[in-house]
């Protein structure tokens, strides 16, 4: 029972990170119709920036997080202006190819920046944990909770921060003038222009927001009581099945997909070795893709995605 609750909470914490990453995909996709495969690389750069501000410059973790969000938002805006803006009106296929190219280039740059040394972000939570109904023991830098339920503070921190940001984003997109302008842009760019909306500005804004969200995801992802390396960007790719699961253009779908994937992965991690060891080590890393394929077979546009209407 404790195992179950523990993996659920851990799953929700991890899932909220995936939800943030998936959201950052959706924000870009709704505004510009581009599936940005470079997002995982931006996430790891966000984690790196957080680490530089927090460790090398010795700033408070939360200030470092905000600064990293600003840096990555600016980088993301630059990418949009240089590489994506010329592709307006061209096929989504070409734009997706561009972002694959960007992903590999940025990923290698982040590998170089990390210099193959794992980094930490000096987060306030560390490995400290709550222990419900048991006695807390700390040895060798690991915390264990005998006979009780262990809840890491960083899990709680992730869930709280992600919830705040996601709620703020939803309200902002639904209520503010900019949110309205963004929705108008995503519906029809020419009509939006005719209404006096600065469509180019909306593209920049959405890429900046998306960059900020993904940097936050990176900074939070790094606060895992352990270290982060550039190869962790590949784990962020798991946000893609989460995204497809919810539907490429659905904000709600991204959050639900992210949480579902996070929980599923952690449940698999806890129970698969006992139930089905023949599936191999680290099987939880492919669970999201299997779930995604099954969902796509039944609903080709994801759970909440808009069905593409074809006009001839």
């Amino acid at each position: 029972m404790n195992d179950l609750i523990h993996s659920l909470i851990f799953g929700i914490a991890q899932g909220s990170i995936y939800a943030l990453i998936a959201l950052s995909f959706v924000v870009i996709f709704r505004a510009t119709g581009v599936l940005n495969f470079a997002q995982p690389a931006l996430m790891i750069l966000g984690a790196f920036a957080t680490s530089v501000f927090a460790i090398d410059l010795g700033l408070n973790y939360f200030i470092a997080l905000v600064l990293a969000m600003i840096v990555i938002a600016l980088l993301s805006m630059g990418i949009e202006r240089v590489a994506i803006r010329p592709m307006v009106g061209q096929s989504t296929f070409s734009a997706a190819l561009i972002t694959v190219g960007l992903f590999i280039a940025l990923y290698v740059i982040s590998t170089r920046l990390f210099d193959s040394k794992p980094r930490t972000v000096n987060d306030p939570w560390g490995v400290s944990a709550l222990c419900l109904g048991g006695n807390l023991k700390e040895e060798w830098g690991f915390v264990s909770c005998e006979g009780g339920l262990i809840i890491y503070w960083h899990s709680i921190g992730k869930i709280v921060l992600a919830t705040i940001v996601i709620a703020a984003l939803f309200i902002w997109l639904a209520r503010s003038k900019y949110g309205l302008a963004m929705r108008a842009t995503s519906m029809d760019q020419e009509t939006a222009l005719a209404q006096g909306i600065n469509v180019g500005g909306m593209f920049s804004t959405s890429w900046a927001i998306s960059g900020a969200i993904v940097a936050l995801a990176g900074g939070l992802f790094a606060a895992n009581g352990s270290v982060i390396q550039s190869t962790d960007a590949l784990f962020a790719l798991v946000a893609l099945p989460a995204l497809v699961l919810g539907g490429l253009d659905s904000l709600k779908g991204a959050v639900i997909g992210g949480l579902a994937i996070g929980i599923l992965m952690n449940l698999t991690k806890t129970y698969q070795t006992a139930i089905a060891p023949w599936l191999g080590l680290n099987f939880e890393n492919v669970v999201p893709y299997i779930v995604m394929i099954i969902v796509l077979l039944i609903r080709p546009y994801g759970l909440f995605g808009t069905k593409e209407v074809q006009r001839v």
Binding site: L35, F37, T92, A96, L237, L240, P241, L243, V244, L248, P288, Y289, I290, M292, I293, L296, P300, Y301, G302
Partner: peptide, 9 residues
């Protein structure tokens, strides 16, 4: 794009 993610899977 769904196909691109599917082949990635």
């Amino acid at each position: 794009l769904y196909l691109a993610v599917l082949t990635l899977g």
